[in-house]
């Protein structure tokens, strides 16, 4: 039963991923640079959202400070690339991710034992505010004007060297890396660890009773999500070639939350849908000066009122209802 179900999930998800990849890879041939830039940024936001949902949807941890790990990864990469330009860029990306995980481990060891739920959320918010303020005060990191002059590296792969600065090379590199990260997250969620996470999310007390070290698994979830986000942040640094403290701000931390809740918590694809919808909204309102807040706000409000379980949750309910051809009252989806 179990393996059959995950087998069909695997096939379906692989097919969806393949379609998305084809679209992303063909974009530079069919659209303008503006769209390609937005698509590249969107890929990073997708990883950002997916990793947040590993904590929330999978393990029941709410973080309000996820952006600080994005920023930590980005600044760590930029700083290391500046002081040690000889290091292989792949090592730098991995290092940035490990650094993000390490910070999360330290925070998690201190915090997760004692506080959970809203306390953990607000604690991460406080930490991210500290990161934000320090980034905007430290002269070596460029203060609030930002860390400038980040170069796109040359990637030597032994048999050949790719100059990521030329053409769309960096875009393709980023898409490849984001795919790897997303596959990694999928694998974690659908593997043994993911099932343990899920049992904690559903009932932490029972999981503990069954002999699961709840705190250790929460810590793992937090560290994996933070490390993944830190790599996404590191990828962002050469993409924009500049980093500003804004990427540690709480409004940026709100992004993965919005993506996930807008798209749907239960599905792996929820944050992806949410991020895409958001990007489309932003792109669509870009010339409607002065109206963008009202339009984006109203659409978000309508979506959340019409589909309280997120877009994907709403769709699947709708489909079920159509299939059964009976009226089923919309049942609230209780997540935690």
């Amino acid at each position: 039963m179990m393996s059959q179900a995950s087998n069909s999930t695997w096939k379906r998800d692989a097919a969806i991923a393949a379609i998305i990849l084809v679209v992303l890879v063909s974009l530079p041939f069919v659209t303008s640079k503006g769209i390609v830039f937005i698509a590249g940024t969107l890929a990073l936001h997708v990883v950002f959202g997916l990793s947040w949902n590993l904590m929330f949807g999978q393990t029941g941890l709410v973080s309000f400070g996820h952006a600080s790990f994005f920023a930590i990864g980005g600044y760590a990469f930029a700083w290391a690339a500046k002081i040690a330009p000889g290091i292989h860029p792949l090592l730098l990306f991995a290092g940035a991710g490990l650094f993000g995980s390490l910070v999360a481990l330290i925070v998690g060891i201190l915090a997760l034992r004692r506080s959970i739920g809203v306390y953990f959320a607000i604690l991460t918010l406080a930490l991210s505010q500290i990161v934000y303020l320090l980034l905007s005060y430290i002269p070596a990191l460029g203060r609030e004007d930002g860390f400038t002059g980040i170069r796109r590296p040359r990637l030597s792969l032994g048999f050949t060297t790719i100059d990521l600065a030329s053409g769309n090379n960096y875009y393709y590199f980023m898409i490849a890396m984001c795919t790897l990260l997303a596959v990694g997250l999928w694998w974690v969620m659908h593997g043994r660890m993911g099932r343990v996470f899920k049992s904690i999310q559903q009932d932490a007390e029972r999981a503990a009773f069954l002999g699961i070290d709840v705190q250790a698994y929460r810590l793992r979830s937090f560290a994996i999500a933070s490390g993944t986000t830190a790599i996404a942040g590191a990828l962002y640094a050469p993409w924009l070639q500049l980093l500003t403290p804004e990427i540690a701000h709480w409004t940026f931390s709100a992004r993965p939350i919005l993506y996930t809740l807008l798209g749907g918590v239960q599905s792996f694809w929820g944050p992806v849908v949410g991020a895409v919808v958001f990007a489309v909204l932003e792109y669509g309102t870009r010339t409607l000066h002065g109206l963008s807040e009202i339009i984006i706000g109203s659409i978000l409000l309508v979506v959340v009122l019409a589909f309280p379980g997120g877009l994907l949750g709403g769709l699947s309910r709708l489909r079920k209802r159509m299939n059964r051809k009976t009226i089923v009252t919309a049942r609230p989806e209780i997540v935690r």
């Binding site: 303008s32 640079k33 503006g34 390609v36 830039f37 924009l240 500003t244 804004e246 870009r286 963008s292």
Partner: peptide
Amino acid sequence: VTRDDKAAPAAGVAAAKDLAGN
């Protein structure tokens, strides 16, 4: 042709790319 940068670097780059692309 006008583009909004929201006084934010990422939005500014997106605006410049969008203009160049058009």
